[in-house]
Every structure is written in structure tokens, then in C-alpha cells.
Amino acid sequence: MRRPGSRFGGRLEPFSHVDLQLYAGRSLDIVTQAELVTSFAPVRADFALSACGSAMVEAADHLAQEDERSNRLFLLLLEGLRTLALSPATPSAVLDGYLFRLASVAGYHPHLDACAACGAPGPHDVFTIAAGGALCPDDAPFDAHPLDPAVTGLLRRLLGGPLSDQRDAPEDPRVRRAAAALVASYLTYHLGRPLRALELVER
């Protein structure tokens, strides 16, 4: 793929959105044609954006299933890379929104407005990753720490709005860090492994 003699050149690089023609091989398919749709060049050229893009791609790679169509995951990844390519002021905020929504797309939707155990309408101020979201006082463990309402509000916005809304988010850095830590823990719990690229994301 990366040999100078490759007829695909720089088309088959990570982050590239490509239109491929594949020949079905015995174990792996063989790329016979590749056309570039978008290279997301700004994401490649900037370290902070590249680290966020890498975390997006890594998470999508872990959650996508072999030979299974996943349009929502694909479209979310495209939205994430497109938003990063606009060089947002806080790329890590775009990443957090992407990761939280990715968990939802993958079937691990975090419940924020109703109790994740009994469905009692909220808001509830305890969030438990293992339970999949907020818990009412009856279902919350007795030693659970309540979540700051500002963090809950940010999580709600991360999950609900378009990723472009996170570009220049003016949130309190303390609230932003708390929400980012919770999103990372939530995804790590459901993936069963941490995302390596997250360690290089600048907060």
C-alpha cells in the first residue's frame, strides 16, 4: 500500500474516505481500484487533530463487525472527521461527542433522562457506567457519587446535538474534563479495552 510503486499511492491512507472496487479473495478482499472521495488533509497535517482522528478511527474499528453493514457507524465517523477537518478550537470536545454517540450507535445507549434500571423519569444525579446511565435513588448504589448537574448537562449535549456544535464549546474546563473522563470510561467499559490513541489527545 505504501510502496512508491503502488498504483494507489496516497489514496489508501488512514482517514481517507475512498470508493473501492474489491475482488473477493479467500480470506481478505483484494483492492483493484481506489478513488479518493475526501482525504481530510487538515486532520493529517495537525498533531492535535490527528490524535483525535486516530481515536475516532480506532474506536470505530473496534466496534465495527466484520462483514456486517453499519451505515450509522460509518456516517458518524464521516461526520466526526469532517468536523475535525474544519479545525475546531477544541477538537477533543468533538471527539468526546463522537465517542458518546458511537457508544449509542453500537447499542450501548447511555440513559441520561430516565433511570437505566427501572425507567423512572429523571433527572437523576447518579451515573453508573455498568448500569448504562443515570439511576434513580431507589436503584442507585448507596455509595455512588452524584454527578455534577453541569456535567450531566454537557453529556446530554454531547449525545444529542450534531458534532459541529462541539467545535467551539465554551464549557468550563473542569466540567469538560469530568465529562471527557466519564465518556472515556464508558466506552472503555463496553469495548473491554482502552483506546490507545486517547492517551495522546490533548485536553
Partner: peptide, 15 residues
């Protein structure tokens, strides 16, 4: 190298 890893490294070092 002019690939993702090389570009990320160059961007980091330049800054």
C-alpha cells in the same frame, strides 16, 4: 515519512 504517522510527528515537532 509522508504518511499519517510521519505527518503527526512532523506537526508535533514543528510546534
Amino acid at each position: 515519512n509522508p504518511n499519517i504517522e510521519g505527518e503527526a510527528t512532523a506537526s508535533y515537532l514543528a510546534r
